[in-house]
């Protein structure tokens, strides 16, 4: 039996800053996972990944990451994606400080 599709977001690293970005429904790259498009359909996921791969001038290494619907928008499933979404745990660097200024 094929495995049931689990919801995904398209994520990558920004070309210039290298930081983690997510693809939104309206084709922007956002720094916030909560603003990402949560994709519930497998065929659509593949299409969105192709869309992302067509923008090599903006991002590096797009891929589909598991996510779930949370109260504020998509939330990470795996702890790696949690760290990518928040930043390192030893310093208040990266998204955890930048998000305050958004």
């Amino acid at each position: 039996m094929p495995r049931a599709f689990t919801p995904k977001v398209v994520t990558a690293n920004a070309l210039l800053e290298g930081d983690v970005v997510y693809l939104t429904e309206d084709d922007r790259w956002t720094r916030q996972l909560t603003e990402a498009e949560l994709i519930e359909d497998e065929a659509h996921a593949q299409l969105r990944l192709l869309d992302a791969e067509m923008r090599p001038g903006q991002v590096v290494g797009p891929y589909l990451a598991d996510a779930v619907a949370g109260p504020d928008g998509p939330a990470p499933v795996h702890f790696r994606e949690t760290f990518r979404a928040t930043g390192p745990s030893n310093y208040a660097h990266g998204k955890q400080v930048e998000s305050k200024n958004v």
Binding site: G61, G94, K95
Partner: peptide, 28 residues
């Protein structure tokens, strides 16, 4: 050339690695 789009990431990656530049979790 990478920034202006003349080089793809596939082309650029070996060049940046030769110069010690990695792309990590949150940044280069």
């Amino acid at each position: 050339r990478r920034i202006d789009g003349s080089l793809t990431e596939e082309e650029f990656k070996p060049l940046r690695l030769m110069n010690g530049l990695y792309l990590q979790l949150h940044a280069y």
